[in-house]
Design a protein around this nucleic acid. Structure first.
Lengths: 155, 155
DNA sequence: ACAATCCTGACCATGACGGTCGGAATTTCC
DNA sequence: GGAAATTCCGACCGTCATGGTCAGGATTGT
Protein backbone atom coordinates (compact mmCIF):
# COMPACT_ATOMS: atom_id res chain seq x y z
CA UNK A 1 0.00 0.00 0.00
CA UNK A 2 2.47 2.56 -1.10
CA UNK A 3 2.89 5.04 -3.90
CA UNK A 4 5.68 4.06 -6.27
CA UNK A 5 8.67 6.31 -6.65
CA UNK A 6 7.65 6.59 -10.24
CA UNK A 7 4.43 8.31 -9.29
CA UNK A 8 6.22 10.38 -6.72
CA UNK A 9 8.90 11.49 -9.16
CA UNK A 10 6.27 12.17 -11.77
CA UNK A 11 4.42 14.37 -9.38
CA UNK A 12 7.54 16.24 -8.38
CA UNK A 13 8.34 16.85 -12.01
CA UNK A 14 4.83 18.07 -12.65
CA UNK A 15 5.01 20.53 -9.78
CA UNK A 16 8.14 21.96 -11.37
CA UNK A 17 6.32 22.30 -14.68
CA UNK A 18 3.49 23.91 -12.78
CA UNK A 19 5.84 26.46 -11.27
CA UNK A 20 7.21 27.32 -14.67
CA UNK A 21 3.74 27.51 -16.20
CA UNK A 22 3.32 30.51 -18.49
CA UNK A 23 7.06 31.15 -18.76
CA UNK A 24 8.01 28.87 -21.61
CA UNK A 25 9.12 25.26 -21.56
CA UNK A 26 11.22 23.79 -18.77
CA UNK A 27 13.82 21.19 -19.65
CA UNK A 28 14.07 17.97 -17.71
CA UNK A 29 17.74 18.76 -17.18
CA UNK A 30 16.52 21.66 -15.08
CA UNK A 31 14.01 19.49 -13.27
CA UNK A 32 16.69 16.93 -12.51
CA UNK A 33 18.91 19.67 -11.12
CA UNK A 34 16.24 21.25 -8.95
CA UNK A 35 14.69 18.05 -7.65
CA UNK A 36 17.88 15.98 -7.53
CA UNK A 37 16.40 13.23 -9.60
CA UNK A 38 18.14 11.06 -12.22
CA UNK A 39 17.79 12.71 -15.59
CA UNK A 40 17.62 9.57 -17.70
CA UNK A 41 14.77 8.29 -15.61
CA UNK A 42 12.87 11.55 -15.82
CA UNK A 43 13.06 11.30 -19.59
CA UNK A 44 11.00 8.16 -19.45
CA UNK A 45 8.45 9.67 -17.14
CA UNK A 46 8.24 12.82 -19.21
CA UNK A 47 7.46 10.65 -22.21
CA UNK A 48 4.57 9.05 -20.37
CA UNK A 49 3.27 12.40 -19.25
CA UNK A 50 3.39 13.68 -22.80
CA UNK A 51 1.68 10.65 -24.27
CA UNK A 52 -0.89 11.05 -21.52
CA UNK A 53 -1.58 14.57 -22.74
CA UNK A 54 -0.58 16.33 -19.55
CA UNK A 55 2.43 18.11 -21.00
CA UNK A 56 3.64 19.11 -24.42
CA UNK A 57 7.22 19.10 -25.53
CA UNK A 58 9.40 21.49 -27.48
CA UNK A 59 12.56 20.12 -28.98
CA UNK A 60 15.77 21.90 -29.64
CA UNK A 61 17.95 24.31 -27.80
CA UNK A 62 15.46 26.18 -25.69
CA UNK A 63 13.11 23.28 -25.53
CA UNK A 64 11.53 21.44 -22.68
CA UNK A 65 8.08 20.62 -21.45
CA UNK A 66 5.12 22.70 -20.45
CA UNK A 67 1.73 21.87 -19.03
CA UNK A 68 -1.07 21.65 -21.54
CA UNK A 69 -3.45 23.10 -18.98
CA UNK A 70 -3.32 25.50 -16.10
CA UNK A 71 -2.10 23.92 -12.83
CA UNK A 72 -5.52 24.49 -11.28
CA UNK A 73 -6.97 22.10 -13.81
CA UNK A 74 -4.61 19.19 -13.26
CA UNK A 75 -5.31 16.89 -10.37
CA UNK A 76 -2.82 14.66 -8.68
CA UNK A 77 -5.04 11.75 -9.61
CA UNK A 78 -4.45 12.43 -13.29
CA UNK A 79 -0.72 12.51 -12.80
CA UNK A 80 -0.69 9.27 -10.83
CA UNK A 81 -2.98 7.61 -13.34
CA UNK A 82 -0.77 8.65 -16.19
CA UNK A 83 2.50 7.34 -14.86
CA UNK A 84 1.30 4.47 -12.73
CA UNK A 85 -1.97 3.38 -14.21
CA UNK A 86 -5.17 3.14 -12.30
CA UNK A 87 -4.87 2.98 -8.55
CA UNK A 88 -6.77 -0.08 -7.49
CA UNK A 89 -6.23 -1.94 -4.24
CA UNK A 90 -7.25 -5.24 -5.81
CA UNK A 91 -7.95 -6.31 -9.37
CA UNK A 92 -11.65 -6.83 -8.98
CA UNK A 93 -12.35 -3.16 -8.30
CA UNK A 94 -10.49 -1.70 -11.26
CA UNK A 95 -12.62 -0.13 -13.95
CA UNK A 96 -11.68 -2.63 -16.63
CA UNK A 97 -12.58 -5.58 -14.46
CA UNK A 98 -14.82 -7.99 -16.33
CA UNK A 99 -17.62 -9.10 -14.11
CA UNK A 100 -17.31 -12.76 -13.30
CA UNK A 101 -13.59 -13.21 -13.86
CA UNK A 102 -13.10 -13.60 -10.13
CA UNK A 103 -14.54 -16.98 -9.24
CA UNK A 104 -15.34 -15.82 -5.78
CA UNK A 105 -17.13 -12.66 -6.82
CA UNK A 106 -20.47 -13.77 -5.46
CA UNK A 107 -19.18 -14.90 -2.13
CA UNK A 108 -16.49 -12.29 -1.65
CA UNK A 109 -16.74 -10.67 1.73
CA UNK A 110 -14.33 -7.86 1.11
CA UNK A 111 -15.03 -6.45 -2.32
CA UNK A 112 -17.23 -3.75 -0.89
CA UNK A 113 -14.42 -2.73 1.39
CA UNK A 114 -11.90 -2.48 -1.43
CA UNK A 115 -14.30 -0.42 -3.49
CA UNK A 116 -14.78 1.98 -0.63
CA UNK A 117 -11.03 2.15 -0.21
CA UNK A 118 -10.43 2.89 -3.86
CA UNK A 119 -13.08 5.59 -3.81
CA UNK A 120 -11.51 7.15 -0.78
CA UNK A 121 -8.04 7.18 -2.29
CA UNK A 122 -9.29 8.53 -5.59
CA UNK A 123 -11.19 11.26 -3.81
CA UNK A 124 -8.13 12.56 -2.00
CA UNK A 125 -6.02 12.53 -5.14
CA UNK A 126 -8.76 14.02 -7.28
CA UNK A 127 -9.35 16.90 -4.91
CA UNK A 128 -5.77 18.06 -4.94
CA UNK A 129 -4.48 20.05 -7.88
CA UNK A 130 -0.96 20.96 -8.86
CA UNK A 131 -1.78 24.58 -8.12
CA UNK A 132 -2.65 23.71 -4.55
CA UNK A 133 0.56 21.78 -4.10
CA UNK A 134 2.79 24.64 -5.11
CA UNK A 135 0.63 27.09 -3.25
CA UNK A 136 0.84 25.11 -0.02
CA UNK A 137 4.56 24.97 -0.43
CA UNK A 138 5.00 28.68 -0.92
CA UNK A 139 2.92 29.15 2.21
CA UNK A 140 5.29 26.91 4.12
CA UNK A 141 8.30 28.75 2.85
CA UNK A 142 6.79 32.12 3.62
CA UNK A 143 6.08 31.10 7.18
CA UNK A 144 9.53 29.83 8.05
CA UNK A 145 12.12 31.47 5.84
CA UNK A 146 14.55 32.35 8.64
CA UNK A 147 14.78 28.96 10.26
CA UNK A 148 16.32 26.41 7.95
CA UNK A 149 16.58 22.95 9.48
CA UNK A 150 20.24 22.16 10.10
CA UNK A 151 19.81 18.58 8.88
CA UNK A 152 18.01 19.48 5.69
CA UNK A 153 20.88 21.51 4.36
CA UNK A 154 21.86 19.90 1.08
CA UNK A 155 21.15 16.99 -1.25
CA UNK B 1 -1.08 1.65 -5.03
CA UNK B 2 -2.46 -1.76 -4.43
CA UNK B 3 -3.06 -4.09 -1.57
CA UNK B 4 -0.72 -7.07 -1.65
CA UNK B 5 -2.13 -10.53 -2.05
CA UNK B 6 -0.59 -11.23 1.28
CA UNK B 7 -2.86 -8.74 2.97
CA UNK B 8 -5.78 -9.91 0.92
CA UNK B 9 -5.18 -13.56 1.79
CA UNK B 10 -4.65 -12.66 5.39
CA UNK B 11 -7.95 -10.88 5.47
CA UNK B 12 -9.76 -13.76 3.82
CA UNK B 13 -8.30 -16.13 6.34
CA UNK B 14 -9.34 -13.84 9.17
CA UNK B 15 -12.91 -13.69 7.91
CA UNK B 16 -12.99 -17.48 8.02
CA UNK B 17 -11.73 -17.43 11.58
CA UNK B 18 -14.36 -14.83 12.31
CA UNK B 19 -17.08 -17.06 10.95
CA UNK B 20 -15.90 -19.92 13.10
CA UNK B 21 -15.61 -17.69 16.15
CA UNK B 22 -17.01 -19.32 19.27
CA UNK B 23 -17.05 -22.79 17.75
CA UNK B 24 -13.54 -23.97 18.47
CA UNK B 25 -10.39 -23.63 16.39
CA UNK B 26 -10.40 -23.74 12.62
CA UNK B 27 -7.49 -25.40 10.86
CA UNK B 28 -5.73 -23.69 8.01
CA UNK B 29 -6.32 -26.82 5.97
CA UNK B 30 -10.01 -25.95 6.19
CA UNK B 31 -9.33 -22.33 5.32
CA UNK B 32 -7.29 -23.39 2.32
CA UNK B 33 -10.12 -25.62 1.16
CA UNK B 34 -12.84 -23.05 1.61
CA UNK B 35 -10.97 -20.10 0.18
CA UNK B 36 -8.97 -21.99 -2.42
CA UNK B 37 -5.69 -20.65 -1.18
CA UNK B 38 -2.32 -22.43 -1.01
CA UNK B 39 -2.00 -24.10 2.35
CA UNK B 40 1.75 -23.72 2.78
CA UNK B 41 1.46 -20.03 2.20
CA UNK B 42 -1.38 -19.66 4.66
CA UNK B 43 0.78 -21.29 7.29
CA UNK B 44 3.19 -18.41 7.02
CA UNK B 45 0.48 -15.83 7.25
CA UNK B 46 -1.14 -17.58 10.16
CA UNK B 47 2.18 -17.40 11.96
CA UNK B 48 2.30 -13.66 11.47
CA UNK B 49 -1.25 -13.26 12.66
CA UNK B 50 -0.48 -15.27 15.75
CA UNK B 51 2.69 -13.36 16.55
CA UNK B 52 0.67 -10.22 16.03
CA UNK B 53 -1.73 -11.37 18.70
CA UNK B 54 -4.80 -11.52 16.49
CA UNK B 55 -5.28 -15.27 16.69
CA UNK B 56 -4.22 -18.04 19.00
CA UNK B 57 -3.28 -21.53 17.92
CA UNK B 58 -4.08 -24.98 19.19
CA UNK B 59 -1.83 -27.77 18.10
CA UNK B 60 -2.67 -31.38 17.65
CA UNK B 61 -5.46 -33.27 16.07
CA UNK B 62 -8.41 -30.97 16.49
CA UNK B 63 -6.25 -27.92 16.49
CA UNK B 64 -6.32 -24.80 14.44
CA UNK B 65 -6.62 -21.09 15.01
CA UNK B 66 -9.19 -18.91 16.67
CA UNK B 67 -9.54 -15.20 17.08
CA UNK B 68 -8.33 -13.78 20.36
CA UNK B 69 -11.11 -11.23 20.29
CA UNK B 70 -14.64 -11.00 19.03
CA UNK B 71 -14.88 -10.14 15.31
CA UNK B 72 -16.51 -6.83 16.20
CA UNK B 73 -13.31 -5.81 17.91
CA UNK B 74 -10.90 -6.55 15.08
CA UNK B 75 -10.52 -3.97 12.37
CA UNK B 76 -9.27 -4.59 8.89
CA UNK B 77 -6.53 -2.08 9.60
CA UNK B 78 -5.14 -4.34 12.31
CA UNK B 79 -5.10 -7.29 9.99
CA UNK B 80 -3.37 -5.38 7.22
CA UNK B 81 -0.88 -3.90 9.64
CA UNK B 82 -0.06 -7.29 11.02
CA UNK B 83 0.68 -9.03 7.77
CA UNK B 84 1.89 -6.15 5.66
CA UNK B 85 3.25 -3.61 8.06
CA UNK B 86 2.15 -0.03 8.19
CA UNK B 87 0.35 1.30 5.18
CA UNK B 88 2.21 4.39 4.14
CA UNK B 89 2.13 5.88 0.65
CA UNK B 90 5.64 7.28 1.04
CA UNK B 91 8.34 6.83 3.65
CA UNK B 92 8.21 10.30 5.08
CA UNK B 93 4.68 9.87 6.41
CA UNK B 94 5.19 6.60 8.26
CA UNK B 95 5.06 6.76 12.02
CA UNK B 96 8.67 5.80 12.52
CA UNK B 97 9.93 8.47 10.17
CA UNK B 98 12.71 10.49 11.78
CA UNK B 99 12.19 14.13 11.12
CA UNK B 100 14.92 15.50 8.90
CA UNK B 101 15.99 12.29 7.21
CA UNK B 102 14.43 13.48 3.97
CA UNK B 103 16.67 16.22 2.67
CA UNK B 104 13.78 17.89 0.94
CA UNK B 105 11.47 17.88 3.93
CA UNK B 106 11.34 21.64 4.22
CA UNK B 107 10.69 22.28 0.57
CA UNK B 108 8.51 19.26 -0.12
CA UNK B 109 5.33 20.24 -1.88
CA UNK B 110 3.53 16.97 -1.51
CA UNK B 111 4.07 15.70 1.99
CA UNK B 112 0.81 17.18 3.18
CA UNK B 113 -0.95 15.36 0.40
CA UNK B 114 0.56 12.01 1.31
CA UNK B 115 -0.35 12.49 4.93
CA UNK B 116 -3.92 13.20 4.02
CA UNK B 117 -3.92 10.14 1.81
CA UNK B 118 -2.57 7.91 4.53
CA UNK B 119 -5.13 9.22 6.98
CA UNK B 120 -7.90 8.57 4.52
CA UNK B 121 -6.79 5.02 3.86
CA UNK B 122 -6.32 4.26 7.52
CA UNK B 123 -9.74 5.63 8.28
CA UNK B 124 -11.49 3.34 5.85
CA UNK B 125 -9.62 0.30 7.08
CA UNK B 126 -10.05 1.22 10.72
CA UNK B 127 -13.78 1.68 10.41
CA UNK B 128 -14.40 -1.77 9.01
CA UNK B 129 -14.42 -4.77 11.33
CA UNK B 130 -14.35 -8.44 10.56
CA UNK B 131 -17.86 -8.71 11.88
CA UNK B 132 -19.08 -6.20 9.32
CA UNK B 133 -17.36 -8.05 6.53
CA UNK B 134 -19.02 -11.36 7.24
CA UNK B 135 -22.30 -9.63 7.95
CA UNK B 136 -22.26 -7.80 4.63
CA UNK B 137 -21.56 -11.05 2.92
CA UNK B 138 -24.41 -12.93 4.52
CA UNK B 139 -26.63 -10.03 3.46
CA UNK B 140 -25.47 -10.45 -0.12
CA UNK B 141 -26.06 -14.15 -0.06
CA UNK B 142 -29.47 -13.76 1.48
CA UNK B 143 -30.50 -11.31 -1.22
CA UNK B 144 -29.50 -13.39 -4.21
CA UNK B 145 -29.45 -17.06 -3.29
CA UNK B 146 -31.31 -18.30 -6.33
CA UNK B 147 -29.26 -16.60 -9.03
CA UNK B 148 -25.73 -17.92 -9.23
CA UNK B 149 -23.63 -16.23 -11.88
CA UNK B 150 -22.97 -18.67 -14.71
CA UNK B 151 -19.34 -17.58 -15.06
CA UNK B 152 -18.48 -17.89 -11.40
CA UNK B 153 -19.07 -21.59 -11.39
CA UNK B 154 -15.81 -23.11 -10.24
CA UNK B 155 -12.46 -22.26 -8.72
C1' DA C 1 1.67 -45.50 17.71
C1' DC C 2 -0.35 -42.69 14.44
C1' DA C 3 -2.41 -39.01 12.32
C1' DA C 4 -3.47 -34.32 12.34
C1' DT C 5 -2.00 -30.18 13.16
C1' DC C 6 1.00 -26.17 14.08
C1' DC C 7 5.75 -24.34 13.50
C1' DT C 8 10.12 -23.02 11.42
C1' DG C 9 13.53 -21.95 8.30
C1' DA C 10 15.30 -22.40 3.94
C1' DC C 11 14.67 -22.13 -0.67
C1' DC C 12 13.09 -20.44 -5.22
C1' DA C 13 11.12 -18.23 -9.46
C1' DT C 14 9.05 -14.37 -11.32
C1' DG C 15 8.16 -9.71 -12.16
C1' DA C 16 8.09 -4.93 -11.07
C1' DC C 17 10.89 -1.24 -10.13
C1' DG C 18 14.30 2.12 -10.37
C1' DG C 19 17.82 3.21 -13.20
C1' DT C 20 21.29 3.42 -17.19
C1' DC C 21 22.93 3.62 -21.90
C1' DG C 22 23.48 4.61 -26.75
C1' DG C 23 21.98 6.75 -30.20
C1' DA C 24 18.61 9.05 -33.37
C1' DA C 25 15.74 13.23 -34.44
C1' DT C 26 14.86 18.01 -34.00
C1' DT C 27 15.68 22.75 -33.28
C1' DT C 28 18.22 27.02 -32.22
C1' DC C 29 22.20 29.75 -32.32
C1' DC C 30 26.56 31.26 -34.16
C1' DG D 1 26.62 24.58 -42.14
C1' DG D 2 27.99 22.93 -37.74
C1' DA D 3 27.73 22.56 -32.90
C1' DA D 4 25.10 22.37 -28.89
C1' DA D 5 20.91 21.54 -26.51
C1' DT D 6 17.26 19.20 -26.22
C1' DT D 7 13.47 15.59 -26.81
C1' DC D 8 12.71 10.83 -28.15
C1' DC D 9 13.08 5.81 -28.18
C1' DG D 10 14.23 1.15 -27.33
C1' DA D 11 17.03 -1.94 -25.14
C1' DC D 12 19.23 -3.42 -21.21
C1' DC D 13 20.18 -4.47 -16.29
C1' DG D 14 20.59 -5.41 -11.14
C1' DT D 15 17.96 -5.64 -7.07
C1' DC D 16 14.28 -6.58 -4.27
C1' DA D 17 9.65 -7.78 -2.68
C1' DT D 18 6.34 -11.00 -3.61
C1' DG D 19 4.01 -15.22 -3.86
C1' DG D 20 4.85 -19.69 -3.25
C1' DT D 21 7.05 -24.39 -2.11
C1' DC D 22 9.40 -27.80 0.61
C1' DA D 23 11.26 -30.64 4.27
C1' DG D 24 11.12 -31.64 8.52
C1' DG D 25 10.46 -30.88 13.56
C1' DA D 26 7.21 -30.22 17.64
C1' DT D 27 2.85 -31.05 19.81
C1' DT D 28 -1.36 -33.25 20.88
C1' DG D 29 -5.74 -36.00 20.53
C1' DT D 30 -7.46 -40.84 19.56
Amino acid sequence: MRVSSKAHYGLRMMTEFARAYGRGPLSIAEVARIEHLPLAYLEQLAGQLRRGGLVESTRGVHGGYSLTRSPELISVLEVVHTVEGEVSPVECVSTDYVSGSCAREGECASRGLWMRLKESIDAVLRQTTLAELIHDQSLLEAMAPAEPHPETSHD
